[in-house]
Amino acid sequence: MSEPLPVLAGVRPASSEDVAGSVLPVAPVIRPVLPWPGLRRGATITVSSMALLFTLLAPVTAAGGWAAVVGMPTVSVVAAAEAGVVVERMPLVPRPGDALGAVVDALVDGMDVVAVAGLIGLRPQEIRKVTARARQRGTVLMSVHAQDRWPGADLELRLAGGRWRGLGAGHGHLLAREVEVRASGRGAAARPRSTSALLPGPGGLVAEATVTWGRGAAAVVGPGCA
Protein backbone atom coordinates (compact mmCIF):
# COMPACT_ATOMS: atom_id res chain seq x y z
CA MET A 1 0.00 0.00 0.00
CA SER A 2 1.35 3.43 -0.90
CA GLU A 3 2.19 5.96 1.80
CA PRO A 4 0.11 9.16 1.70
CA LEU A 5 1.83 12.21 0.24
CA PRO A 6 2.19 15.37 2.34
CA VAL A 7 -0.99 17.44 2.26
CA LEU A 8 -0.73 20.60 0.14
CA ALA A 9 -2.61 23.68 1.26
CA GLY A 10 -5.87 24.04 -0.63
CA VAL A 11 -5.85 20.48 -1.99
CA ARG A 12 -8.80 18.24 -1.20
CA PRO A 13 -9.79 14.88 -2.68
CA ALA A 14 -12.78 15.04 -5.00
CA SER A 15 -15.95 13.49 -3.70
CA SER A 16 -18.22 11.29 -5.80
CA GLU A 17 -20.63 14.24 -6.00
CA ASP A 18 -17.87 16.38 -7.54
CA VAL A 19 -17.03 13.77 -10.15
CA ALA A 20 -20.36 12.84 -11.70
CA GLY A 21 -20.66 14.54 -15.08
CA SER A 22 -18.11 17.24 -14.28
CA VAL A 23 -15.28 18.55 -16.43
CA LEU A 24 -12.15 20.63 -16.00
CA PRO A 25 -11.76 23.84 -18.03
CA VAL A 26 -9.89 23.97 -21.34
CA ALA A 27 -8.81 26.77 -23.65
CA PRO A 28 -11.63 27.66 -26.09
CA VAL A 29 -9.43 26.88 -29.09
CA ILE A 30 -8.97 23.27 -27.87
CA ARG A 31 -12.62 22.62 -27.08
CA PRO A 32 -13.73 21.76 -30.68
CA VAL A 33 -11.59 18.59 -30.73
CA LEU A 34 -12.89 17.25 -27.42
CA PRO A 35 -15.88 14.91 -27.13
CA TRP A 36 -16.77 16.68 -23.86
CA PRO A 37 -17.24 20.39 -22.97
CA GLY A 38 -13.92 20.22 -21.07
CA LEU A 39 -11.54 17.58 -19.71
CA ARG A 40 -13.84 14.92 -18.34
CA ARG A 41 -12.96 14.04 -14.78
CA GLY A 42 -11.68 10.49 -14.50
CA ALA A 43 -10.59 10.32 -18.15
CA THR A 44 -7.27 8.96 -19.38
CA ILE A 45 -5.59 11.08 -22.06
CA THR A 46 -2.38 10.74 -24.06
CA VAL A 47 -0.71 13.96 -25.23
CA SER A 48 2.11 14.08 -27.76
CA SER A 49 4.23 16.98 -26.48
CA MET A 50 5.06 19.21 -23.54
CA ALA A 51 3.64 22.22 -25.38
CA LEU A 52 0.28 20.49 -25.61
CA LEU A 53 0.50 19.35 -21.99
CA PHE A 54 1.08 22.91 -20.75
CA THR A 55 -1.81 24.11 -22.93
CA LEU A 56 -4.10 21.69 -21.11
CA LEU A 57 -2.74 22.40 -17.63
CA ALA A 58 -2.94 26.20 -17.92
CA PRO A 59 -6.75 26.61 -17.65
CA VAL A 60 -6.97 23.97 -14.91
CA THR A 61 -4.41 25.67 -12.66
CA ALA A 62 -5.71 29.16 -13.51
CA ALA A 63 -9.12 28.06 -12.24
CA GLY A 64 -7.62 26.94 -8.92
CA GLY A 65 -6.99 23.28 -9.76
CA TRP A 66 -3.88 21.23 -9.07
CA ALA A 67 -1.86 19.34 -11.69
CA ALA A 68 1.08 17.09 -10.77
CA VAL A 69 3.85 16.28 -13.24
CA VAL A 70 5.63 12.97 -12.61
CA GLY A 71 8.73 11.42 -14.15
CA MET A 72 9.86 14.45 -16.17
CA PRO A 73 13.17 15.68 -14.70
CA THR A 74 13.83 18.09 -17.56
CA VAL A 75 10.44 19.85 -17.45
CA SER A 76 10.86 23.61 -17.75
CA VAL A 77 8.94 25.56 -15.13
CA VAL A 78 9.70 28.75 -17.07
CA ALA A 79 8.15 27.29 -20.25
CA ALA A 80 5.12 26.17 -18.25
CA ALA A 81 4.66 29.66 -16.81
CA GLU A 82 5.02 31.25 -20.25
CA ALA A 83 2.25 28.92 -21.48
CA GLY A 84 -0.05 30.17 -18.73
CA VAL A 85 0.37 27.42 -16.13
CA VAL A 86 0.14 28.62 -12.52
CA VAL A 87 3.32 26.80 -11.52
CA GLU A 88 2.59 27.13 -7.80
CA ARG A 89 -0.22 24.65 -8.48
CA MET A 90 1.99 22.23 -10.46
CA PRO A 91 3.83 19.93 -8.02
CA LEU A 92 6.76 18.11 -9.60
CA VAL A 93 8.00 14.59 -8.87
CA PRO A 94 10.91 14.47 -11.32
CA ARG A 95 12.43 11.10 -10.46
CA PRO A 96 10.00 8.71 -8.74
CA GLY A 97 12.18 5.71 -9.56
CA ASP A 98 10.78 2.37 -8.50
CA ALA A 99 8.06 4.16 -6.55
CA LEU A 100 6.33 5.45 -9.71
CA GLY A 101 3.19 3.38 -9.16
CA ALA A 102 2.91 4.37 -5.48
CA VAL A 103 3.49 8.05 -6.29
CA VAL A 104 0.85 8.18 -9.02
CA ASP A 105 -1.59 6.21 -6.86
CA ALA A 106 -1.16 8.69 -4.00
CA LEU A 107 -1.39 11.79 -6.20
CA VAL A 108 -4.67 10.64 -7.70
CA ASP A 109 -6.30 11.20 -4.31
CA GLY A 110 -5.61 14.95 -4.24
CA MET A 111 -4.84 16.23 -7.74
CA ASP A 112 -7.21 17.30 -10.49
CA VAL A 113 -4.69 16.17 -13.14
CA VAL A 114 -1.72 13.79 -12.91
CA ALA A 115 0.61 13.82 -15.93
CA VAL A 116 3.07 10.95 -16.17
CA ALA A 117 6.06 10.04 -18.33
CA GLY A 118 7.81 6.69 -18.20
CA LEU A 119 4.83 4.34 -18.10
CA ILE A 120 7.26 1.53 -18.86
CA GLY A 121 7.98 1.67 -15.13
CA LEU A 122 4.41 0.66 -14.29
CA ARG A 123 3.30 -2.95 -14.25
CA PRO A 124 0.02 -3.74 -16.06
CA GLN A 125 -1.78 -4.39 -12.77
CA GLU A 126 -0.58 -1.02 -11.44
CA ILE A 127 -1.91 0.74 -14.53
CA ARG A 128 -5.30 -0.94 -14.14
CA LYS A 129 -5.42 -0.04 -10.44
CA VAL A 130 -4.48 3.61 -11.00
CA THR A 131 -6.92 3.95 -13.90
CA ALA A 132 -9.80 2.62 -11.83
CA ARG A 133 -8.86 4.83 -8.88
CA ALA A 134 -8.66 7.93 -11.11
CA ARG A 135 -12.15 7.24 -12.47
CA GLN A 136 -13.48 6.90 -8.93
CA ARG A 137 -11.73 10.03 -7.63
CA GLY A 138 -12.34 12.14 -10.74
CA THR A 139 -8.68 12.73 -11.55
CA VAL A 140 -7.63 13.19 -15.17
CA LEU A 141 -4.64 10.96 -15.97
CA MET A 142 -2.34 12.08 -18.78
CA SER A 143 0.57 10.24 -20.34
CA VAL A 144 3.08 12.33 -22.24
CA HIS A 145 4.89 11.48 -25.49
CA ALA A 146 4.08 8.84 -28.10
CA GLN A 147 6.04 6.05 -26.41
CA ASP A 148 3.99 6.51 -23.25
CA ARG A 149 0.46 6.00 -24.52
CA TRP A 150 -1.84 5.15 -21.66
CA PRO A 151 -3.28 1.67 -22.41
CA GLY A 152 -6.92 2.01 -23.43
CA ALA A 153 -6.79 5.82 -23.22
CA ASP A 154 -10.12 7.58 -23.68
CA LEU A 155 -8.51 10.29 -25.82
CA GLU A 156 -5.27 10.91 -27.69
CA LEU A 157 -4.25 14.47 -28.55
CA ARG A 158 -1.37 15.24 -30.89
CA LEU A 159 0.03 18.09 -32.94
CA ALA A 160 0.70 18.03 -36.68
CA GLY A 161 2.37 20.50 -38.99
CA GLY A 162 4.07 23.67 -37.91
CA ARG A 163 4.02 26.97 -39.76
CA TRP A 164 5.90 29.76 -38.03
CA ARG A 165 4.78 33.38 -38.34
CA GLY A 166 6.97 36.45 -38.07
CA LEU A 167 10.11 35.51 -39.99
CA GLY A 168 10.49 37.66 -43.10
CA ALA A 169 12.99 37.49 -45.95
CA GLY A 170 16.12 37.13 -43.86
CA HIS A 171 14.92 39.20 -40.92
CA GLY A 172 12.33 39.35 -38.14
CA HIS A 173 11.41 37.17 -35.18
CA LEU A 174 9.38 33.99 -34.84
CA LEU A 175 6.16 35.10 -33.17
CA ALA A 176 3.71 32.20 -33.35
CA ARG A 177 3.36 28.69 -34.74
CA GLU A 178 0.25 27.45 -36.49
CA VAL A 179 -0.39 23.76 -35.85
CA GLU A 180 -3.18 21.29 -36.28
CA VAL A 181 -4.49 19.73 -33.08
CA ARG A 182 -5.79 16.25 -33.78
CA ALA A 183 -7.88 14.07 -31.49
CA SER A 184 -8.93 10.44 -31.61
CA GLY A 185 -9.91 7.84 -29.06
CA ARG A 186 -12.68 5.50 -28.08
CA GLY A 187 -16.28 5.81 -27.04
CA ALA A 188 -17.40 9.41 -27.44
CA ALA A 189 -13.98 10.24 -28.92
CA ALA A 190 -14.07 7.55 -31.62
CA ARG A 191 -14.73 10.09 -34.38
CA PRO A 192 -11.42 11.82 -35.25
CA ARG A 193 -11.48 15.62 -34.92
CA SER A 194 -9.03 18.38 -35.66
CA THR A 195 -8.69 22.14 -35.37
CA SER A 196 -6.06 24.76 -36.15
CA ALA A 197 -4.40 26.76 -33.38
CA LEU A 198 -1.45 29.02 -32.72
CA LEU A 199 0.78 27.11 -30.30
CA PRO A 200 2.54 29.09 -29.10
CA GLY A 201 0.57 32.18 -30.00
CA PRO A 202 1.88 35.73 -29.67
CA GLY A 203 3.00 36.13 -26.07
CA GLY A 204 3.30 32.38 -25.50
CA LEU A 205 -0.34 31.44 -24.88
CA VAL A 206 -2.37 29.24 -27.21
CA ALA A 207 -4.59 31.25 -29.53
CA GLU A 208 -7.02 30.77 -32.38
CA ALA A 209 -5.45 30.51 -35.82
CA THR A 210 -7.47 33.40 -37.25
CA VAL A 211 -4.55 35.62 -38.25
CA THR A 212 -3.75 35.62 -41.98
CA TRP A 213 -0.19 34.80 -42.92
CA GLY A 214 1.91 37.70 -44.01
CA ARG A 215 4.42 37.78 -46.81
CA GLY A 216 7.52 35.75 -46.04
CA ALA A 217 6.03 33.60 -43.30
CA ALA A 218 8.19 30.56 -42.71
CA ALA A 219 6.82 27.04 -42.91
CA VAL A 220 8.51 24.40 -40.79
CA VAL A 221 7.30 20.83 -40.53
CA GLY A 222 9.19 18.37 -38.38
CA PRO A 223 9.35 16.15 -35.31
CA GLY A 224 9.19 19.13 -32.98
CA CYS A 225 5.54 19.55 -33.91
CA ALA A 226 4.49 15.99 -33.11
Rank of each mutant, 00 (worst) to 15 (best):
E17T: 15
L92T: 01
T139S: 01
P94I: 00
F54C: 09
A217Q: 04
V114G: 11
S22H: 12
D98W: 11
S22I: 08
P6E: 03
V116L: 07
T210N: 12
P59C: 11
T55R: 01
S22G: 05
D154L: 03
L56K: 05
V33Y: 00
A115M: 09
V70L: 01
P13V: 15
V7Y: 11
L199K: 02
G162I: 00
L100S: 02
R40S: 11
G138D: 06
G170K: 01
G71P: 11
V211K: 10
R149T: 05
F54A: 10
S22T: 14
A106M: 02
V211A: 13
A226Q: 03
G152E: 08
G65D: 12
G101I: 09
D154S: 05
G152L: 09
P35A: 04
V47A: 03
V130C: 00
A188C: 06
R40K: 13
L119A: 04
G64A: 03
R41L: 01
A189Y: 08
P37Y: 04
R163Q: 14
V144N: 00
G110W: 09
G152K: 03
V103H: 07
L175M: 04
P28A: 11
R133P: 04
M50G: 15
E178S: 07
V116I: 14
A62K: 14
G84W: 11
A132N: 09
V206I: 09
G64L: 05
G187V: 04
G162Y: 00
G222Q: 08
R191T: 15
D18S: 05
